[in-house]
Design a protein around this nucleic acid. Structure first.
Length: 882
RNA sequence: GGUCAGCUAGCUCAGUUGGUUAGAGCGCGCGGUUCACAUCCGCGAGGUCGAGGGUUCGAGUCCCCCGCUGACCACCA
């Protein structure tokens, strides 16, 4: 037998078995109720990272549990084409070869992309199989699938025909690196310290006005100066004109409510072409738009050759220098502010005016707000409800066009007569006039436009396929909080708009795993942790159980490798107690043929009932954990019950019974209880740790080919009955007593392993002997011999637990009574606190009866224990003295 | 500027209607190995629950205020 659980040999076996048995595949004709999760599609060329490990592990855990509960589970996997990310990779490759995509041409570029997908596509799917995720691989989808493309075009055409998609010039977030517009949700704001420049402009009539700006280079495109409407400092200047240095353009001074009088000088230079606020001010005051920055992020000012073609950063300094030389630059100070970066390339965004496609969101958002307000869709944790609603209620039109090559082409053409129309199948002629000289729109769609259709497009929508019928709407969506707006909100809006149904009922937002220092994990920082490395090191089960346990409690969780290691040891513990103890020792190599019919209840010993009651509590904790998406509660309860209640106490207790071959009935009850407990625990743990639980369950009686074919444990009436008997309490007290007797050994030089040197008597509160079984049980758990009574003349240490107390004599010498004294001290403190509390009428009258009763009960118990300890001590001393 | 979250043992974190002596894992100290497991077992030390007020018979838990950390939102000049 292997010394330890060897996941590296076990995992491949079970992955194959699950595939052979079709565990992940859902039968669309099944009469079982469907339970469906649409996998958030990872980038096809991506690699499994911590975020995936945490969200995917939870999804698989839920899927496995639902299968055991009798649902037809569909966990639909797929991948996203990730247009911008992939295009950037290919362009970097080309750059290394000294090429640009324009030199290569569109067709050749596309084949490079295809080759890249071919080489790296689906790697992440292999990694997911490696982790044991039971997706329905037969329903694998890709956002570039023909059917999926059809769905996208239909959605676009519908929105276009309804006037919800429009094209127009507006100021957009332009990424000079990607050479594309991006949406507001794709901006990564970063704090940056720049210089705030104060520019003093001459005003007609000999006065002057000073504006503050961090971007002096944009003054080349200024077409106005704005002040706050009520600002008395500038009231007299409103309507006058300023002559701008360098361009010598004459621009008006206007009053606009967007100006914050307290900032800088209270006067704002207005650059409608390169600032979103200024764009709006300009629109309100009909100021002209002057573009001075080109799409590549360089200055576009042919009339000022000294700046033309300069990168913006360089132009900033150059323009500032020129203004300084002219005496216009009157002050400079450091200024920290947020600067928008492209979340794909990290490049500083350049707001500029350009012609883009937009979706009108307001009417789409309204029902999406209602679905969440009404509780039809629930966020977990609940606080994300407000995050979602706030964004939805303030939603802005969505820029969906991208000026990149890769992705879904915007399905719009324009004919020679200027008719613009959207299409589903590529057209040959204009539907309005029949003209055949068609020009296709050059842009592609935002990737999120396509992923927003995921939950229904993957099942064949718009066709009313059997899959769509059976599996849509889905039930649960599990994802990180970073894509609530980008993806979750848009799926809700699209789902309602195009299917008339909410796409899911529950949204689970997982914790974010941070680096050990609390910073964000990122490839560029080099502080990422690879879940597959961890799976190599600790086994997939350990990574999965850890991921599930940490992903549903806090908002952010620092990565703690030791905690993963603890789940690896837990897997080993499970395997040891199953294979090494139950099978090897109890069953002499096999327990497959064991009689699993419950024994007569009266043959169950108190400890058996205690174990069953503990098991019942674990089932309850596990069920409520699943129901509330609080998986850490389920994992913690199962870990504790398995390791401590079962392995540390129950198994240790029954070892003595198992060794007693004479008592056949007792042995049978113990074996049955142990096997039953383990079987239930393995089933409950299976969703979290599928590999080790399968490996263990195979060795138990009545094994199925996979635990996925077993049912989820129900509460057995026998267990509840066990919990209501006094057995549970009795054993709990005995366990506590054992701990206290053991504690005597610490710090008191009690020689361990010297059973014959330590003698104990165990009695109840009235000084009577206790149940023989329990007394023997205690004797088996401590290194001591149980005797009926001590010889006269010795001074026992006394320990108390509940109604039980033990007199302990070590090596026939006077025991160090400090343990007894310590207990007395604690109890005295306890008693006086309880007495004070109960003497307070405000407490007795004000607190609920159950609380007061409980306080009285505790006081009575503590008082009784105190009496026992004092009597034991005094009595012993008196005898010793005599 | 606004909103949300976090601050509990050396570390990472539990602690859902306020009610035992505030818990776990890891780490640390002491002891233990023929008898499932040293990836183990037993015992122990370690906390004024971020600071300060308040409500209450009673506060880690509720309220106010402050501090620090992080996230998000915002028209971020």
């Amino acid at each position: 037998m292997e010394k330890h659980f060897d996941w590296s040999s076990v995992e491949p076996k079970w992955r194959e078995r699950w595939t052979e048995l079709g565990v992940g595949h859902a039968d669309v004709t099944s009469t079982k109720p469907a339970y469906v999760i649409a996998l958030p599609p990872p980038n096809i060329t991506g690699a499994l990272h911590m975020g995936h490990a945490s969200t995917f592990s939870i999804q698989d855990t839920v899927c496995r549990e639902r299968r055991m509960r009798g649902y037809e589970v569909e966990w639909a996997p797929g991948t996203d084409h990730a247009a911008i990310a992939t295009q950037n990779v290919i362009e970097r490759q080309l750059a290394e070869e000294g090429l640009t995509k324009e030199e290569l041409g569109r067709a050749a570029f596309q084949s490079r992309v295809d080759a890249w997908y071919e080489e790296y596509g689906g790697r992440i799917l292999e990694q997911m199989r490696r982790m044991g995720y039971t997706c329905d691989w037969e329903r694998l989808r890709f956002t570039l699938d023909e059917q999926y493309v059809h769905a996208i075009r239909l959605v676009f055409k519908t929105l276009f025909d309804e006037g919800l998609v429009y094209r127009g010039p507006r100021i957009v977030n332009w990424c000079p690196y990607c050479r594309s517009a991006i949406s507001d949700e794709e901006i990564d704001w970063q704090v940056q310290t720049d210089t705030l420049y104060y520019l003093k402009y001459p005003v007609e009539g000999g006065q002057s006005i000073t504006v503050a700006t961090v971007r002096p280079e944009t003054m080349l495109g200024d077409t106005g100066v704005a002040v706050a409407p009520g600002d008395s400092r500038y009231a007299s200047l409103i309507g006058k004109h300023v002559t701008l240095p360098l361009t010598w353009r004459v621009v008006p001074i206007i009053a606009d409510q967007a100006v914050r009088p307290e900032f800088g000088t209270g006067a704002l230079k207005v650059t409608p072409g390169h600032d979103p606020t200024d764009y709006e001010i300009g629109a309100r005051h009909s100021l002209p738009i002057v573009n001075v920055i080109a799409l590549d992020g360089t200055m576009d000012v042919p009339s000022l050759p000294q700046f033309h073609g300069m990168p913006v950063e360089a132009a900033r300094t150059a323009v500032a220098d020129a203004l300084r030389a002219l005496g216009v630059l009157v002050k400079e100070e450091p200024y920290a502010h947020d600067v928008g970066h492209c979340d794909r390339s990290g490049t500083v965004l350049e707001p500029l005016v350009s012609e883009q496609w937009w979706v009108r969101m307001a009417s789409l958002a309204a029902p999406g707000i209602g679905a969440v307000e009404s509780g039809e869709i629930t966020f977990h944790p609940a606080r994300y409800t407000d995050v979602y609603l706030h964004w939805m209620r303030n939603i802005k039109d969505w820029c969906i066009s991208r000026q990149i090559w890769l992705g879904h082409a915007i399905p719009v053409s324009t004919c020679g007569n200027g008719h613009r129309f959207a299409w589903i199948d590529p057209p040959t002629r204009c539907p309005d006039c029949g003209d055949t000289s068609l020009t296709d729109d050059p842009d592609v769609l935002d990737t999120w436009f396509s992923s927003g259709l995921w939950p229904f497009a993957i099942f064949g929508w718009p066709e009313q396929t059997p899959d769509l019928e059976k599996f849509y709407p889905t039930d649960l969506l599990v994802t990180g909080r970073d894509i609530i707006f980008l993806w979750v909100a848009r799926m809700i809006m699209n789902g309602i708009k195009f299917t008339g149904r909410n796409p899911f009922t529950d949204v689970l937002i997982t914790s974010t795993i941070q680096a050990t220092d609390g910073s964000r994990m990122s490839k560029s920082k080099g502080n990422t942790v690879d879940p597959l490395d961890l799976a190599d090191k600790y086994g997939a089960d350990a990574v999965r159980a850890w991921a599930a346990a940490v992903s549903t409690s806090v908002q952010d969780m620092r990565f703690d490798e030791d905690r993963i290691a603890s789940y690896q040891r837990f897997a080993n513990k499970l395997w040891q107690v199953t294979s090494g103890f139950l099978v090897a020792k109890v069953g002499n190599g096999s327990i497959a043929d064991l009689d699993v019919h419950p024994p007569k209840p009266e043959t169950l010993r108190p400890e058996d009932r205690w174990m069953l009651a503990e098991l019942a509590a674990a089932v309850r904790a596990c069920d409520s954990g699943f129901a509330a998406y609080r998986f850490h509660e389920a994992v913690d309860a199962l870990y504790d019950t398995t390791w401590h209640s079962f392995c540390d106490w129950y198994v240790e207790i029954i070892k003595f019974r198992l060794a007693d071959a004479g008592d056949h009935e007792s042995r049978r009850a113990a074996v049955w209880t142990a096997v039953t407990t383990l079987d239930v625990l393995l089933r409950l743990l299976h969703p979290f740790m599928p590999f080790v639980t399968e490996e263990c369950a195979q060795q138990l009686p009545n094994a199925e080919p996979t635990l996925q074919h077993r049912s989820w444990p129900d509460q057995d009436p026998l267990w509840s009955e066990a919990a209501t008997t006094s057995a549970h309490h009795e054993i709990a007290e005995a366990i506590e007593l054992v701990k206290r007797i053991r504690a005597l050994g610490h710090g008191h030089k009690v020689p361990r392993g010297a059973r014959d040197r330590i003698r104990i008597t165990v009695r109840d509160g009235e000084g009577r002997g206790i149940n023989k079984h329990v007394s023997r049980l205690i004797g088996g758990l401590v290194p001591a011999t149980v005797v009926d009574s001590h010889e006269r003349g010795v001074d026992p240490a006394v320990v108390v637990s509940g109604r039980l107390h033990a007199e302990v004599v070590i090596a026939d010498t006077a025991a160090d009574a400090s343990a007894t004294a310590r207990q007395i001290g604690l109890l005295e403190a306890n008693v006086s606190r309880l007495q004070a509390q109960l003497a307070n009428p405000a407490f007795v009258n004000g607190a609920p009866a159950r609380v007061v009763d409980e306080a009285r009960r505790r006081l009575a118990e503590a008082t009784a224990q105190l009496d026992l300890l004092r009597r034991g001590r005094l009595g012993g001393s008196a005898d010793a003295a005599g």
